[in-house]
Design a protein around this nucleic acid. Structure first.
Lengths: 152, 152
DNA sequence: GCGCTATAGTTGCGTGTGCAACAATTTATG
DNA sequence: CATAAATTGTTGCACACGCAACTATAGCGC
């Protein structure tokens, strides 16, 4: 039973570390994005996700998954961004229940403004977290996650 | 400039992965804890943090840091838990601005009930995340963060 | 000791969120 | 075809959150 308990405790500790780092980064980024572009982190996430589709559409449900938000929250999030003219709803013809969303020119522009702010806030938050002994290992592990296997 | 841009993009991708996994785990755990013990994730975090102090006190500010919550949210969180009799406020004598919080017997009991639920939800969420290609690397990296260097 | 600044915690207020119930459309079943 | 079941997105409602303003205590300079 010792081994099993150890595994449980290790998972719990990993989760606490993950949550702590997440909270730190999100709080820091929230302030930076709000100041620079009147965008919350989830709003930025939506614009960023849409831009990464390279001119493609995204369904509400996909946005909900990308932001870990409930359907109702997704609806209102898209409402806010549409009211500001940053994206548009597009009824799709083949499935008339579905709704596509697409970045407008204004949305793309604002994203271009916000992206450097986002990136700098992230770098800054990670640097700060790297100074905390309990967060440093995770900070170091992050960039290596999707490391490409070197050629040859 | 290529190298620099790469670093930025790698950080951003790491952050997206972190946020996605965090959202997945939190949502899953929120449901499980609410069903089993009428506790939200942050409420559980507070009780757990207090119990880990081994009968010691924690200041409001420490709780705020442990939960990544604002001072006002911390106040109300402690209010909720105090109203349910799960913890008590203790005015500390040496600094009369400070307020200590301590787990009650009922709080400790509820935590004992909730902990297995928490642990199982965590294991389940991690297993599910491990099936997603973009999350699997982080899931695998987590347990190794605080790995003890094997003797010899 | 007296004022000034800093720190700890609490409240008013606006807002974003999840849940449950709902409307609209598609798909499966007879 | 018709009807039931499943899926997609939207609204009413209650609630937790952050920000700014506030109170109370501590620490500093004179």
């Amino acid at each position: 039973m010792g081994i099993r308990d150890d595994a449980v405790e290790i998972r719990a500790q990993g989760w606490r570390t993950l949550a702590a780092l997440h909270g730190l980064i999100e709080a820091s980024m929230e302030k930076a994005l709000t100041n620079a572009a009147q965008l919350s982190v989830v709003e930025y996430t939506v614009l960023d996700a849409l831009s990464r589709q390279d001119g493609w559409h995204m369904r509400m449900q996909q946005l909900g998954r990308a932001t870990a938000l409930s359907p109702s929250a997704t609806t209102r999030l898209v409402n806010r961004l549409e009211d500001r003219g940053l994206l548009t709803r597009i009824l799709c013809a083949d499935d008339r229940r579905g709704i596509y969303t697409e970045l407008t020119a204004a949305g793309s522009e604002l994203l271009d403004t916000a992206r450097p702010v986002h990136d700098e806030a992230l770098e800054c938050a990670l640097a700060e977290a790297a100074l905390l002994p309990e967060l440093a290992p995770l900070v170091q592990a992050l960039p290596q996650l999707h490391a490409v296997v070197p050629a040859q």
